[in-house]
Design a protein around this nucleic acid. Structure first.
Lengths: 347, 347
DNA sequence: GTGAAAGCGCTAACAG
DNA sequence: CTGTTAGCGCTTTCAC
């Protein structure tokens, strides 16, 4: 204690204002920088006495290692890149939140980047990841991404890339996907079981592969059922457009669908607004089923029957894959999050 | 061109695999590192010829500056810290999205950290900011934060701290707030104007200063109106609790409120669920008004009349303040985002 | 057990 | 106009 008090005085008068660095610590203690460095990391070579001395002073001076120096020296970082088309989206939002939680637990930091659903911005984001020597990157591709070479190139230099949700076709890479087909099949089967025969499917941007996939599977499932289904399909690029399109179908009393399938949360909000604008009651006059991230359908009354593909689950699994990669399992692997049916009162 | 081709061959055979650094560039070009560095930054001293040569090679070798080296050398970074109690919250989410957008525009990167509404985690987050030599930090305090000294200390070392939304009482610091009182007054006045006299106010966690403030202002505004108002107040710590509490009031037919005031989006979702569980119709049987971030009220039908305090506006203003700070305006300043009344059909 | 020394990639005085 | 030099703070080999 006495020694420390002594030091304190000394520091107060001369070095207090100095930034605590290994060099400064070593100077005040009159030992070498390397010894200080080792002591702080509990290197076995260093005597307990020295360790104690060093650590006490370090605490006193609020020593904090300079991450830039460390990263420069070791040529790596504990930063993980996360590149998503957009943050303001239920799915990606919970995806990021899940990764954030895991990252914090395991002492990683996150560089969160959104591509504004723009392939060029995405490339820039990748560059930012490179420049920051990230330890790995999670990426959900934009719908316009044609070229994944830059990603694979980065991976070749030893930086793990985990493609999430929106993944490329190319096989030899790590992918974490939602069970899109499964979710769609579950939805279609629920509709079949409900015995409604006039079906309206409101889908997203027609250019997105996820839209194409869901459309195809949805159609097939209904067709293969041997039931006489009257299926209408429409596409909307936004919640507003979904409202608009849906209203057209609802206003035509002859053709009015008995059940509406919404392929996403965004579509669902649009569709529900359309329904509210009519006098139709759910589920008496019209039924609704959606594929969703899980939160939104519970806001309505009755709650909307939906199939969950969870961004949280996806984020957690992606993170786990990243950690496995970091510990050597670098082979390509495709993992899938299962879909889950959630009974609401809307079907 | 010939020269470049030549270089290419040379690179291909010997240096291609090397990481592009100033050193490597300088070696291949037989000029000094500093000249390369200057050429790349368009330093006026350097001849156009040299600049051209250097830039061509840099492009060819995919040169990317090492941010760690730069930050170490210059002892600063283009990273801004963002510390919020939680991301999964309409308000903070849009707050972050707004900052993200501005940051991207001005070439800053974001270190997004959530404190899980825990003062200790918040302190750790601050430490992460320090360790990363962030150029500034935006912070929305947790409701448990008692001690803001660590923040002020960081500011003393030259790192701007902008307190946002949940700000400390201490005056001598930069704050960006929503006009809480104003939003509450607008809500209360809307209720007074509606001539409903049985009012239920559903508020958030009673320990939060924002709750106290809104409660106090709400009460005062109603009291000062000289109208005979029958006001009930209840508190809920979660959406679920809000549902539960609201149901108790709704089930009692004698006492049933005519209008419900929801102090936040979270509360609003809970209250609406409760209403849905009864046979009551909005606004015929019961009216609703909320203070909100703007998105959620539009999901219901009729849309909920609300007062917007926008996370986006707050984020944008906070970012602007940060930039002003960076360019020298370091004096303490308190800025306020005005509230905006949005007519829905629920009152 | 401890220290000396080299170097990660870059910037910025200073010197020509 | 270009080069030399001295670090930023840290890790790590090698030597004692």
């Amino acid at each position: 204690m006495f020694a420390v008090d002594n030091l304190f005085l000394q520091i107060n008068s001369t070095t207090m204002k100095q930034k605590a660095t290994l060099k400064n610590l070593s100077k005040t203690l009159n030992i070498s920088i390397s010894t200080v460095s080792r002591a702080l990391k509990n290197h076995p070579d260093i005597s307990d006495e020295t360790k104690k001395k060093v650590k006490e002073l370090a605490a006193l001076m609020d020593y904090e290692p300079n991450t830039y120096a460390i990263n420069l020296r070791t040529n790596k970082s504990n930063i993980l890149g996360v590149i998503v088309p957009e943050i303001s989206n239920f799915f990606y939002h919970s995806f990021i939140a899940a990764i954030e939680e895991e990252a914090r637990r395991l002492n990683y930091m996150l560089l969160i980047l959104q591509s504004a659903n723009n392939a060029e911005t995405e490339l820039e984001n990748l560059k930012l990841c490179r420049m920051n020597r990230v330890a790995g990157v999670f990426v959900a591709l934009t719908s316009h991404t044609k070229e994944i070479k830059p990603f694979l190139q980065l991976e070749e230099t030893g930086t793990p890339i985990i493609f999430c949700d929106k993944v490329p076709d190319f096989e030899a890479c790590n992918k974490i996907c939602s069970a899109d087909a499964e979710a769609t099949i579950i939805s279609a089967n629920a509709i079949l079981k409900s015995n409604k025969r006039k079906v309206l499917a409101v889908l997203g941007n027609i250019d997105l592969s996820i839209t194409k996939k869901r459309e195809q599977v949805f159609k097939e499932t209904l067709e293969n059922s041997n039931e006489q289904i009257n299926l209408e399909i429409t596409h909307a690029n936004s919640s507003e457009e979904a409202t608009h399109k849906t209203l057209q179908y609802l206003s035509n009393n002859m053709q009015r669908p008995e059940v509406i399938f919404c392929m996403s949360d965004e579509i669902l909000t649009g569709v529900m607004k359309a329904i509210y604008q009519t006098e139709l009651k759910v589920p008496k006059d019209i039924s609704v089923i959606a594929i969703s991230n899980g939160f939104l359908p519970t806001l309505f009354s009755p709650e909307i029957t939906h199939v969950v593909t969870s961004g949280i689950d996806l984020g957690k699994l992606a993170f786990k894959r990243m950690m496995d990669y970091q510990s050597g399992k670098t082979f390509a692997q495709e993992l899938t999050i299962r879909a889950r049916f959630v009974e609401g009162g809307s079907l």
